[in-house]
Amino acid sequence: MSDVAQALGGASFTGFARVEELAPQGMISFRGDLSDPVVQEALRAATGLEMPAQRGIVQAEERALGWMSPDEAILLMPHAALGGVLVELRAALAGQHHLAVDVSDARVTFRLSGPGAREVLAKLAPVDLSPAAFAEGELRRTRVAQVAAAFWLSGAEEIALICFRSVARYVFDLLAVSAAEGGEVRAF
């Protein structure tokens, strides 16, 4: 659809790691009691994924289910599938207090890739990004410089990062500055 505007038009930068703005994906913010078996079952049925543990994310193909807080989860899927997931969730939880909101457009997704991906992010986020502490399946909600962000490993040398759409340029510029050649730290 030509009128679908990406915040930065798919910007990218290559330094000692690569930074790319990804095409918009479907994203649902789910509020509910994640310890409730009914909620867990509804999420499992809607996403086909197991409920992740605290600070965790479960990914398969183009879908993911992330733990954001004891009462908040994030669901990722192809945008085309979002409507169906919402309908399914609402049906499964009819009469059950919850809130599932399409937030696909509220956020942008960046991909950091290459052997230096962790290094780039470690300059900006107060998170232990060493391989020992931050492995696949871990999700962090934190800040990147001055703004809120969440990220997880989306591959062996690949990090997916989401932030609010309005700060896309700021975050992209920071990631690019941090990935610039000559700024390698090699602490991991």
Binding site: H97, L99, V103, R107
Partner: peptide
């Protein structure tokens, strides 16, 4: 109170 909140500031133009 049974209420959930979600910010949608950036979801909507």
């Amino acid at each position: 109170l049974d209420v959930w909140l979600t910010s949608t500031t950036e979801q909507w133009a």
